[in-house]
Design a protein around this nucleic acid. Structure first.
Lengths: 123, 123
DNA sequence: ATTATTGTATTAAGTGGTTAATACAATAAT
DNA sequence: ATTATTGTATTAACCACTTAATACAATAAT
């Protein structure tokens, strides 16, 4: 988890996205404990306030539960996590298709291109 | 061209992307004249300084040419535009595939999903 | 020649994100 | 009981982006 943070967008939104990604991909399994705000901030090399801001948002979304003085953990609701994963995937696909169409590619061209690039990646 | 500007990223970078998109997709054909900075700024509902910043960057990239007192125009080098289009497409595809893999999808799953969604869009 | 339009530059103010340095309350660990 | 760790809150400073208002030089249009 190399915490890829760019400077072209607010850091806290990037933290939200990356932590969410770690949750839905199973890096942090349902019910597992998260490191403390301070530890996560140090790990990501950001200010604790910034990490806090990201975690609060994830809690509002229901993916994370806060236990006041004993840290935070991932929700045990595996269905909710699966739903988040599906939603993220659909967003990715539709954004991708929309962008490619704006670029001027027809649907069959898009399929051809992506088939070709997937084959490339298998090497 | 409804100038979709969100507040989660610098506006001038979004302007760059959208103008580039209009160039490679042919909204602004090679050699055609661009509206003045002030007009484009008003059209996009941004400050002229912000639009200026975006146009300067596009000129550095070679897609736009400045004629000091008679406005700007799109480059007549169609090859360069085609190259930009291809580059943008490849970026879209690789970013998409990378994100889907991070989400935990296998390559054959990605192909299945996108085939399915393309069929949906044809309706 | 005069006027209008072009890109460009400057200065000041406002805004939001980030960092830093602290502090506090609750409670788990000892 | 005491200590350490937890999330949380506050304040100030800094920085990049954005807007606003204005001005200037070059030149196309009249």
């Amino acid at each position: 988890m190399p915490w890829e943070l760019k400077s072209d967008r607010p850091i806290y939104t990037q933290l939200i996205e990356q932590i969410e990604l770690m949750i839905v991909s199973g890096v942090y399994p349902p019910g597992s404990k998260l490191p403390s705000v301070r530890d996560m901030a140090q790990e990501a090399e950001v200010n604790p306030n910034t990490m806090q801001k990201a975690l609060v948002k994830l809690e509002e979304d229901g993916l994370i539960i806060t236990h006041r003085t004993s840290g935070r953990s991932i929700t045990e609701d595996a269905t909710m996590i699966e739903r988040a994963k599906t939603k993220l995937a659909q967003e990715q696909v539709s954004e991708f298709l929309e962008k490619m169409q704006l670029l001027g590619f027809e649907q069959h061209e898009i399929l051809t291109i992506i088939n070709h690039m997937v084959k490339e990646m298998k090497k």
